[in-house]
Simulated assay, not measured.
Amino acid sequence: MPTSFHSKPVIEPLSKYHNRAAFDCGVEALGRYIWQQAMQDAKRKIAATFVLTGDRPESIVGYYTLSSTSVNVGELPEQVVRKLPRYPLIPATLIGRLAVDRHYQGRGYGELLLVDALRRSLILTEQIGSAAVIVDAKDDKARAFYEHFQFIPLISYSHRLFLPMAAIEDYFAE
């Protein structure tokens, strides 16, 4: 578990209480999202944003978003498709964004956020079907991060990756 906190890290839904303006991950699009769009997306039920708070409960160390999506089975490798029903689209959970404030980068908080997103996605499959978690890697560094956790690139989109829910289930069963 990452260190630097005086108490156990907390990951909770984004609220008006959180200081979004102070968040700076070094990527303008990810910063702008948390500053300007995340609360609106939550109100519209477009995406749910979860924040990792620091020593002060209003501070944001990092965040991720979850929403539902689907993936065309033609984009999945054959060994995965063989295990799925013959539907043209398969339901999935999208981690649309994942970012860590630049003051906390390189300390394992990205992994902590990803593991929480995967755990939450797995739990939600009890309520709504999802065969995989999908991510859109912003660049090669982000792609390598997700590949480290066994995400597999889709056939036509090298920076859109997926992790089958069965693999996530196995991960948490250990």
Rank of each mutant, 00 (worst) to 15 (best):
S4F: 14
F5D: 10
H6N: 13
K8N: 11
P9D: 12
P9W: 11
P9M: 15
I11D: 00
E12W: 05
E12V: 15
L14Q: 01
L14A: 01
Y17C: 08
Y17E: 14
N19P: 08
A21F: 10
F23H: 04
F23L: 13
C25I: 04
C25H: 01
C25A: 05
C25S: 08
C25L: 06
C25D: 00
E28Q: 10
L30R: 06
L30G: 02
G31D: 14
R32E: 14
W35N: 08
W35M: 05
Q36T: 09
Q36H: 13
Q36A: 06
M39R: 04
Q40R: 14
Q40E: 10
D41A: 14
R44V: 04
R44K: 14
A48I: 10
T49L: 06
T49V: 12
V51C: 12
L52F: 05
G54C: 10
D55W: 03
D55C: 09
P57Y: 04
S59H: 10
I60A: 02
V61R: 00
G62L: 07
G62H: 02
Y63I: 09
L66I: 15
L66V: 08
L66K: 03
S67Q: 07
S68Y: 09
T69R: 06
S70Q: 11
G74C: 12
G74N: 11
G74D: 03
L76M: 15
P77W: 09
P77K: 13
P77N: 13
E78D: 09
Q79M: 07
V81I: 15
V81L: 11
V81P: 02
R82A: 13
P85T: 08
R86I: 05
Y87Q: 10
P88Y: 12
T93M: 11
L94R: 03
L94D: 09
L94M: 14
R97K: 11
A99D: 10
A99F: 02
D101F: 01
R102V: 13
H103Y: 13
Q105L: 03
Y109A: 01
Y109T: 02
G110Y: 00
L113N: 01
L113K: 00
L114W: 05
R119K: 15
R120V: 10
R120W: 00
S121Q: 04
S121H: 05
L122P: 00
I123K: 13
I123A: 14
T125I: 11
T125G: 07
Q127A: 11
S130H: 01
S130Y: 01
A131R: 11
A132N: 05
V133Q: 12
V133K: 04
I134F: 02
A137H: 05
A137P: 03
A144C: 01
A144L: 06
A144K: 09
Y146L: 07
E147M: 15
E147V: 12
F149W: 08
I152S: 04
I152Q: 15
L154G: 04
L154D: 05
I155A: 11
Y157H: 14
H159N: 13
H159R: 15
R160Q: 14
F162V: 14
F162I: 08
M165Y: 02
A167K: 02
E169L: 08
D170F: 04
F172A: 07
F172G: 06
A173M: 08
E174H: 15
E174W: 07
